[in-house]
């Protein structure tokens, strides 16, 4: 379980001004839940994710995993960044093997595991390619495999499909759902796409414009396993999308009116 307890984040900007990025966020995420965070850009979604990752420590409040305060990054929480952040000096296999090797898994064993994972994300045959030789969608698959390789209990995904074309995005969404439905990791998923959030999640957390607050949490009660083609025709799905889009429009107007 992840608990975010009255977390606020203030950044000092270069003009020596204080900028309130997150304001008093409280949120609980159950084990095995797929939770999306949705909000306009600049509202602090990434910052919230970095706090849970332990990369950034909050100015106020605490975040806990399994009841223990987060003090730094750890292999129990695996990030997948929008920028992929693959090691350019390592091949696909080298990138995926990095985590297991770091955890002390024997080379031969890590190699076998990583090859299986690479196959699972659909990149069989690309083991010895360097990241620069892959397309964006392929890089994102490698990034996902690299994180899955060290078996984090929590996946922290920051707009992982944001930079991809619509077709690749849909494919990767389906793949992610398949993986998640199989091993039920806790997923914290940042996105600015309403469709994506509703399609994937159990819960959608809608945030306001900066300074980021939680505007509302929507439980998505759609049956699983979800199939995109069926869902798009499902009036319940459509209702969720429209409802959340209205909410976001409201928050934009909040932002305009001082």
């Amino acid at each position: 379980m992840i608990e975010i307890d009255h977390v606020s984040q203030i950044f000092r900007t270069s003009g020596r001004q204080a900028h309130l990025a997150l304001s008093d966020i409280s949120l609980t995420i159950e084990d095995g839940a797929f939770v999306s965070i949705l909000g306009p850009s600049g509202c602090g979604k990434s910052t919230l994710l970095y706090i849970v990752g332990g990369f950034v420590s909050p100015t106020e409040g605490v975040a806990r995993v399994k009841g223990r305060a987060i003090t730094g990054p750890g292999p129990d929480r695996g990030p997948v960044f929008q920028e992929f952040a693959l090691f350019p000096w390592k091949t696909v296999l080298g990138n995926v093997m990095y985590g297991p090797r770091q955890q002390g898994v024997k080379a031969a064993e890590a190699d076998a595991q990583s090859r299986r994972l690479i196959e699972m994300v659909g990149l069989k045959g690309f083991e010895n390619f360097y990241p620069k030789e892959l397309s964006g969608g392929m890089k994102q698959r490698v990034a996902l495999a690299r994180t899955l390789a060290y078996h984090p209990a929590v996946l922290l995904m920051d707009e992982p499909f944001g930079a991809l074309d619509a077709h690749t995005r849909t494919r990767l969404q389906n793949d992610l759902l398949n993986i998640w439905e199989r091993d039920r990791k806790t997923v914290l998923f940042v996105t600015h796409s309403v469709d994506e959030a509703v399609f994937l999640s159990d819960k959608v957390v809608v945030m306001t414009r900066a300074p980021g607050r939680i505007k509302q949490i929507v439980d998505i009660e759609l049956p699983r396993p979800r199939r995109r083609a069926e869902l798009l025709l499902d009036p319940r799905y459509q209702k969720y999308v429209v409802e959340i889009e209205r909410m976001i429009d409201d928050t934009s107007e909040d932002g305009l009116r001082p």
């Binding site: 970095y50 292999p75 990030p79 960044f81 985590g99």
Partner: peptide
């Protein structure tokens, strides 16, 4: 060096 490379390595337990 890109911060996220460092974060990725730290998260993997470096």
């Amino acid at each position: 060096v890109e911060q996220k490379l460092i974060w990725s390595a730290m998260a993997a337990g470096t």
